[in-house]
Design a protein around this nucleic acid. Structure first.
Lengths: 196, 196
DNA sequence: TTGATTCATTGATTTGAATCAATAGTATTT
DNA sequence: AAATACTATTGATTCAAATCAATGAATCAA
C-alpha cells in the first residue's frame, strides 16, 4: 500500500524498517474519485498528500472565475497548499482529483511528529523544499523569457507523460493561456511538423 | 561586523555564543562597489551571500540581451544562485551590487560544515527554503492574475523601501515589463491620484 | 564644467493574445 | 440510443503591451 511512498522517500534518504513502521502508524490512506476535492478554497489545508495512484491538481480561481492551475501531481508527487498548511490560515487554493486517485495523507500533527521521530524525514523535507524552490524559479524565468509556443513545447518535453493524461484546457490554464490560444499554437506546430 | 547577520539568524533560531564563534571562523566578509559582480553567468556559484549593507540583485540575460531581474537583496537578505550552488553546475545568472555593499559570504564547504556543526543553522535553512518557496508561489500567481498596474502597485506596497532605492527600469525588469510601459503606468497612476 | 552615458518620458505603429461568438466533436449519463 | 454536458477548433474583432524612434533629464567621470 505504501510502497510508492517509501520508494519516493528512499530516493534521497534511508529509512529503517522501524522508521517505516512509524510512518505506517501515522499516515492515512485515502481514495478520491475523479473530480472530488481534497481541499476547497476557504478551508485550512490540514495535510500534505502523496499521490500513490492517479493525478491531482491545485489551482485557484480569480475574480473573473478563471481557473489557474498551479501544479499537477501524478503518482509519486506530493501536493498541498504549503502556505495554508504552515500558517493554518485559510487557503485560496483548490485541490481536486483529475483522475480517480489514491493518496497517502500526512496531517499536520503527524508531519510535526514524524520530522522529530524520523530525523531523516526532516532532512527529506529540507531537500524537497529546496528543490521545489529551485524548480519554481525556473518556471518563473521561463514565464518571462519564452514565447508562448516555446513554453508549450518545453512543457511537452519535460512532462510528456502528464501532458498526455490531462485535457488541453488544463494545460492552457497551467501555462496562463486561453484554450483558444493553445489550440491555435498546436495547429501551428502541427503545420510546422508536416513540412518535413 | 556580523551583527546584522546574527540578528537575522536569531529571528527563527537561537544561537549560543559558541555557535556564533563557529560562524565567525567560517564566514568571509566582503565589500562590493556599486556595479561590481558577485557572480557572473558561466561561473559556478561558490557561496551564499548575506547582505549586511547595501543592495544586490540577481538577474539573467535573454537571447535578445534583455535583463530580467529575479531578486533584489537589500540589507538583511540572502542572495545566491541556489541551483548552481547546490549542483555545482555553471550559473545562468548574474549577481551584482546596485549600491556599494557589504556581504557575509558562506562558501559551500562552510555551509555544509555549519549545517552539521550548528544543527540550528540546518533548521534555519529548512525554514528559509520553505518560506522562499511559498513567497515565490505567491509571486507566480500574482504574475498570472494581476493586471500590470496592480502588479506595480502591489510591489510598491510590499517593498516601498526597496522601490525607493532602485532605478525605475530595474523595477520594470523585475515585473517583466519594458521601461516604456512602466513609465506610462506611473503616469496613469499619478493622473488618478490627482483627481482627489 | 563639460562632455558622455545612462535613464525617463512621450508619440506612432505593430503585434500577439484575449475576447466574443459560433460550430463541431467527444464523453457521460440516464 | 438519445440527451446533455463538456472539450476543442475556427473566425472576427479588440486591446494591452512591445517595438521603434526621438527628445529631454539626470548622473557620472574626466
Amino acid at each position: 500500500m505504501l510502497d510508492n511512498f517509501f520508494d519516493k522517500l528512499s530516493n534521497g534518504i534511508t529509512l529503517t524498517e522501524a522508521d517505516k513502521a512509524i510512518f505506517r502508524q501515522h499516515v492515512i490512506v485515502k481514495k478520491l474519485r475523479k473530480r472530488q476535492y481534497l481541499l476547497q478554497e476557504g478551508e485550512i489545508c490540514k495535510s500534505v498528500a502523496f499521490v500513490s495512484k492517479g493525478m491531482l491538481r491545485s489551482y485557484f480561481v480569480d475574480e473573473k472565475s478563471n481557473e489557474h492551475i498551479i501544479q499537477f501531481a501524478p503518482e509519486g508527487w506530493f501536493i498541498s497548499d504549503l502556505y495554508s498548511f504552515i500558517t493554518e490560515d485559510s487557503s485560496n487554493l483548490n485541490i481536486d482529483a483529475i483522475e480517480s486517485s489514491e493518496l497517502i495523507l500526512i496531517t499536520k500533527t503527524a508531519h510535526v511528529y514524524l520530522e522529530k521521530a524520523v530525523p531523516e524525514f526532516f532532512k527529506f523535507n529540507y531537500m524537497q523544499y529546496r528543490g521545489a524552490y529551485i524548480s519554481l524559479q525556473k518556471r518563473l524565468t521561463d514565464m518571462f523569457t519564452l514565447s508562448t509556443e516555446e513554453k508549450y513545447t518545453k512543457l511537452l518535453k519535460i512532462y510528456p507523460d502528464i501532458m498526455q493524461r490531462v485535457p488541453q484546457h488544463m494545460i492552457a490554464s497551467y501555462l496562463g493561456l486561453t484554450p483558444e490560444t493553445l489550440s491555435r499554437i498546436r495547429k501551428k506546430l502541427i503545420a510546422k511538423k508536416d513540412k518535413f
